[in-house]
Simulated scan of single mutants.
Amino acid sequence: MSRRKEPAIPNELLDQLLAGGAASAAFEQGGLLDSLKKALTERALNAEMDHHLAADDGTGNTRNGYGRKTVMTDTGKLAIDVPRDRQASFDPQLIA
Rank of each mutant, 00 (worst) to 15 (best):
L14F: 07
R4M: 14
L13Y: 10
S24R: 12
K37I: 02
A26H: 07
Y66T: 07
A22K: 08
R68A: 15
R84M: 00
E28T: 12
Y66I: 10
G58Q: 12
P92G: 03
F27D: 07
K69F: 00
L78K: 13
G30R: 11
R68Q: 10
L33C: 01
L36K: 05
T70F: 09
A44N: 06
T73I: 03
H52K: 03
N61G: 15
G21E: 12
E28I: 06
S35K: 12
Y66C: 13
G20T: 14
I80N: 00
A25I: 09
L40M: 04
G21A: 14
I80F: 00
S24L: 11
A88Y: 11
D56Y: 14
K38D: 06
Q93M: 03
D50L: 11
N46Y: 11
K77M: 08
L14T: 09
R84H: 00
K69W: 02
I80V: 02
M49C: 00
D74V: 01
D50F: 03
A8M: 06
D50T: 07
P92L: 03
K5N: 07
K5V: 13
Q87V: 15
A44Q: 05
K38F: 02
K77N: 14
T70R: 09
D57T: 15
P7N: 01
D34Y: 08
T70L: 14
A96K: 07
R43N: 07
P83V: 02
R68F: 07
L36Q: 04
D85Y: 06
E48F: 00
K77R: 14
A22S: 12
Q29A: 12
K77G: 13
S2L: 08
T41C: 02
E6K: 09
I9E: 00
A39D: 03
P7A: 01
A96G: 06
A88L: 08
H52D: 01
I80G: 01
L36I: 04
V82Y: 02
Q16P: 15
A19T: 14
A39Q: 05
